[in-house]
Design a protein around this nucleic acid. Structure first.
Lengths: 333, 333
DNA sequence: TTGTAGGCGTTATCAT
DNA sequence: ATGATAACGCCTACAA
């Protein structure tokens, strides 16, 4: 910057003013500075700017697992929105470990990011709450319950609507006993579970629930458990896209045919659902939009605006994987 | 930091020395400083450190499309490795636009990242090369041809082996005319194409090639083109996971059954391939590893070590989507 | 409108 | 071994 100033024959402060669009600069000044900038190919150092301006134009995004297509889409939606607003995104993953959530929050704080978007591994984790309450930074939570003592904006999915419609669909097809495999410890799991139980009660269905992590392995294991139960459900709802992979693998291995032997509903649309034969019914939501809105909320907070929570819809998409109940038991034998 | 110094009754420089593990500090000094640090909950400002130390401990990752599970896994592998080494990752996507590649490279330069990992939208793009030659920063290219005048390390996939095995498999099944749908302008596409042509020549097969972008739409469109050609191939290789989605959709719509009516091979294993019925043969590679090695190469460069290119294997996985050629024409009518 | 000077939070150099 | 001081590159009162 000094070189630019010398070349233009002005003070450094003038260069700064021109480049940061200060109102009081003569056209002549601007011209000379810009010429010098151009000639030297000068680019301001954002690091120094950040130090001085006390803002980094960067935000930190903590997610449990980037390689999960669900999060990949959320991240993409958020990154695009943030970038359009001039922010860069620092991305890290917690590998499902709350301790890492906390560590990453603290690290991002030390890096002085302007805000945080979090998809926490566990709600109500002591260490995470601690870290968060200390950092005092605009924060957006993705589909999590409010954190005690933390003022964070939230973007939520209305899991209830999709789940209720899914159960209704099964009830209308004549199912009386329905299995649910679902995660734990975070809102998407608890909401799906609550909605499932209520919908089953309302329709007089017997709901059989298996809980676990959101992993492929859990999906496989709990599906096996449901199949091997004395009273096998005639329909299955799987509350997570990774779990669904596990469930489908197990069903295929056992020769259980969707629609014919068992009805099947997944959550979160991934390519396999529409390509599968038969195509798989799902509770769908717009993941890019989820990420985009999270970024939007954060940007609003960064501008100092008050923000409430935003709820995004989910939608049940019926497909041929659901059919009237059949004699699964026979197939299994 | 000043407060810490005052509380401990020492100079700021001493605080700095203690915290950055300088050898010449008395145990007493260290103790007093650490006590003060603890009491005040002081955390060094990484921004100021970066400015002073002239390194940000951050790297920039530019990718065309994060929501593609292929890249999501690569990103994950890289992020984990970088994080373990104390680096944070700035992630952005180019949306397949070379101009954005260049813009992001320049932005990351201004942010003073210590290094770059790039999955460029297009090789040999003038603007990208320009940006890259100016920035002068340790750089790793993911599966791209060497860039003229740019000294970058590269991590590559050995597409040839997998593709050659795929074609051989089809030849052995008795196929004589094989279609390939493939991308453009980047190494994975050109390597697959070259290997395909050579393998076809070596086996005396007729290879029919359709090129386009790596999108779902291209996959669908070019598959239609191949099906509607006067001489329909009896086997199809699709060179990209997004394209494969498009191809499978089209085939399902037309009632073309894999294995029975046409043989089908995908590239890049995604869940749908093993779950599909029949399971789909693929040319597979380890994407996490690809990302991990990219990070490893970059870290080596950051330590000042010379690094060559690293080639990772691909593997053909035969599955029932491939079978001896059949009377596809009859099905289409 | 422009220049001067001090400081953002560190660390490295140089004394002591 | 410790302390004072000058940068790192930029921005912003304040003065002119």
């Amino acid at each position: 910057m000094r070189e630019v100033a010398e070349l233009a024959g002005v003070a450094m402060s003038s260069v700064s003013r021109v480049l940061s669009g200060h109102p009081d600069v003569s056209p002549r000044m601007r011209e000379r500075v810009l010429a010098a900038v151009d000639e030297l190919g000068y680019k301001p150092d954002l690091l120094a700017q950040s130090l001085r301006r006390r803002e980094t134009l960067s935000i930190g995004f903590v997610v449990a697992d980037i390689s999960n297509p669900l999060f990949a889409e959320i991240v993409m939606g958020a990154e695009r929105e943030l970038r359009a607003a001039g922010y860069s995104m620092l991305l890290t993953h917690s590998e499902g470990d709350p301790a890492q959530d906390a560590a990453h929050i603290r690290l991002f704080d030390q890096r002085r990011v302007d805000g945080l978007i979090l998809s926490l591994a566990r709600e109500a984790d002591r260490e995470t709450l601690d870290a968060l309450s200390r950092v005092e930074m605009p924060t957006v939570l993705i589909d999590r319950e409010p954190l005690e003592g933390i003022d964070a904006a939230r973007v939520l999915s209305d899991h209830r609507t999709g789940m209720t419609a899914a159960v209704a669909h099964l009830a209308e097809l004549g199912h009386r006993r329905v299995g649910l495999v679902v995660g734990r410890a975070v809102r998407p799991a608890t909401e799906r579970l609550k909605a499932f139980r209520e919908a089953c009660a309302a329709r007089g269905l017997e709901g059989v629930v298996r809980e676990g992590t959101f992993s492929v392995e859990t999906g496989a294991r709990e599906t096996v458990a449901l199949l091997d139960a004395p009273e096998t459900p005639t329909a299955l709802i799987i509350g997570g896209n990774q779990m669904m992979i596990g469930a489908l693998t197990v069903l295929a291995e056992r020769g259980v045919e969707l629609g014919r032997d068992i009805s099947f509903i997944g959550c979160d649309d991934i390519p396999v659902t529409s390509l599968y034969r038969p195509p798989i019914a799902v509770v769908r939501r717009d993941n890019h939009e989820l990420g985009r809105v999270a970024a939007e909320l954060l940007l609003a907070r960064l501008r100092g605006e008050a923000t409430g929570d935003i709820v995004l819809p989910t939608e049940f998409v019926p497909r041929p994987s659901c059919a009237p109940p059949a004699r699964l038991q026979e197939t299994l034998r």
